Structures are given as C-alpha cells and as structure tokens.
Simulated scan of single mutants.
Amino acid sequence: MLIAQLTDIHIGFEPEARPEELNRQRFRATLDRLLSQPNKPDMLICSGDITDRGDAESFDKTAALLAECPFPVHMMVGNHDTREGLLHAFPATPVYDGFIQYAFEQDGLLVVMLDTLEIGRHAGAFCERRRDWLRATLEAKRSTPTVIFMHHPPVVAGIGWMDPNEDDPWILNLAAALEGMDQVLAIHCGHLHRPIVTSFRGIPLAVTPSVAPLVAMDLRPISSEKPDARALITTEPPSYALHRWEDGTLVSHYEKVCDWDVLAYYNPHLQPMIREMEKERLGG
C-alpha cells in the first residue's frame, strides 16, 4: 500500500494574483507529478494548511484540483485552516466532538489523523478531549500497526521562529496518549516547510516538506528585537511523500517536483547490472 502525503499548500496567500497565484501553480505541479509518476498511490493525505486563510473559496479551489485524484483523499486541518472551510469543501470528512480527528484501517495498518488546530494560535494544540480520544483509539487497536498524521510536529527542530516549547501542554498531552503504545510505527507531520527526521518519545517522526515555498534552513538563534536580514522563505521546489506499507514495514520516500534529466534508462545494456544485483539479493 502506498500513502501519498501533501502538506502546507497555502492556497489563497495571493488571492488576487493573475493569472494564477504561485502557491496554486506549485500545487498543480505537485499534483500533476503525483498523478503521473510510476507509483500509483492507494490514498492521499493532505496534512494541513491546505489554505492560507481558511476561506471557503480557497478550499473550493483545492477541492476542484483534488477531484482529479483516482484514489481516496483524506483531509486534516492546520493552523492556517478553519474546520468550517474544510468541511464546506470536503463534507464527508469525519468529525469527532467538533474536531477533525479520525482513524481508519486499510491493509492491516491503522491510519490516525489528528487535529492540532486552535483558532488564533500559530503553534499546535492538543487538549484533553483529543488526548483521551487518541488514547482510547490506540488502546482498542494495540495489536494493529499504526501510523499517525498530524500537522504540527511536537518537537524542537532548531528553527527558532517556528519551534514550540518542548514542555508545551499540548505536547505533554500527546506524549501521555502515546505512552506505552508500541504499535505506533511512525508520526508524519507538516508545518515546518522542511524535510526533517527525528523521534518523539521513541517513535520515529518525520516532517514532509511543503508544497508552498519552503522555510530557509537557518538554525541560528533568532531575535524578535533585532531583524538580521536572514532568509526566511525560499523558492526551493515543492515536495511530496510516498509512505510504503508492505510486509509489516513502513518506509517513507520523498521527491522534489522540478525538471531534471534522466541519466540512465533500463535498457538492455544495463540488464547485466540488474541481474547481478538480483543474484546478490537471492544469495547467489
């Protein structure tokens, strides 16, 4: 099973742009690549900040493009979204106690979608009600391998102006829900607009890079009192992820969306190399 992930699309950042805003161009290019690349996804997860302002028009524009997908699309909110806007454009999205938080099982893998939105707050949120739902959901599926998707990474990555405090209450709530849940194989996030790999409470955690322009990789301390002309946002290419679940193993792949040259094709002159590598794998 292949799970595609797009995150941080930010449609509507320049709503008056003509003929088409940059973020929508990047989204269209990423979606085109996802649909044309050789690995057919079984589903797509959009992990938050679908829009930049949470408005219905931006969600409608997103839904119109996602209608091209020949596989299920699962939505979740980020801090730039609104639950009302998302449900307007994607009314079939499950809701729990007012939160866009749900789980489903496919091919022996439990996929958990978390809601880390608190309106008016840039950073994440995860209250006691969401914590208790997650704990109960995982308790009921202790023998089922699980992957969690959430918008905000509950870790300090070193990008000072984007990072949370490691002892934020929402992070402690998440940690409490995950304690002892050994079936959780990985956590996949967005929000930071960069490719990042780390762990949270012993669980592998990765951040998928954004579709919208990326955050510059500058890990120096930053001061709100002293602008230092550092780069904050760059035009690095948009990216997407493919998470491969097969034979009890979850592996994640990432691809940038840009023009490149193919340096080798699998033609007869490379067949001996492929045969030799296959022979090694088979113990020959």
Rank of each mutant, 00 (worst) to 15 (best):
D163Y: 09
E21F: 04
V147F: 04
A64I: 04
I45W: 08
L263E: 11
V156Y: 07
L134C: 03
T235V: 04
G78C: 08
L192T: 07
V147K: 00
N267K: 03
I45L: 12
L219V: 02
Y96L: 00
D259C: 04
A63T: 05
S252V: 00
N173D: 08
E246I: 06
A123N: 12
D8C: 08
R131Q: 15
R142Q: 12
E84I: 01
M75H: 12
A123L: 13
T249I: 12
W170Q: 04
I222Y: 12
E236S: 11
D60I: 07
D261A: 14
E225P: 00
A123H: 13
L35K: 13
E57P: 00
D261W: 01
G124I: 06
H253S: 07
H253Y: 15
A17D: 07
Q271C: 02
F104H: 15
L44W: 02
I159L: 15
E84L: 02
T30G: 05
L232H: 13
H243N: 14
C189A: 10
A231F: 02
A123S: 09
L185D: 01
R121I: 06
D55N: 14
V257L: 07
A123V: 01
R26G: 08
M150K: 04
T249D: 01
P38W: 02
G283R: 05
D132I: 01
G12R: 00
G120C: 09
P221C: 12
I171Y: 09
A63K: 05
R230T: 06
D167E: 10
M277D: 01
G120I: 08
F149S: 03
I148G: 02
M75Q: 14
P268Y: 02
D168E: 15
I100A: 07
K61L: 15
I9G: 06
M75R: 14
M1C: 04
M162F: 09
A175Q: 14
C258Y: 02
V262T: 13
I187Y: 02
H188I: 10
P204V: 10
E276T: 11
P237S: 08
C46L: 13
L65G: 08
K40R: 15
H152T: 11
C127Q: 05
M273D: 04
I100R: 11
G158K: 04
T144I: 09
H151Y: 11
P41A: 14
F126K: 10
A177P: 02
A67D: 14
E280Y: 03
M1R: 06
L2D: 00
C127D: 15
E166T: 05
P204N: 09
T30H: 05
A216N: 08
D42E: 13
A125E: 10
Y266Q: 12
V215W: 09
E105V: 10
T51P: 13
D97E: 15
C189W: 01
N39L: 13
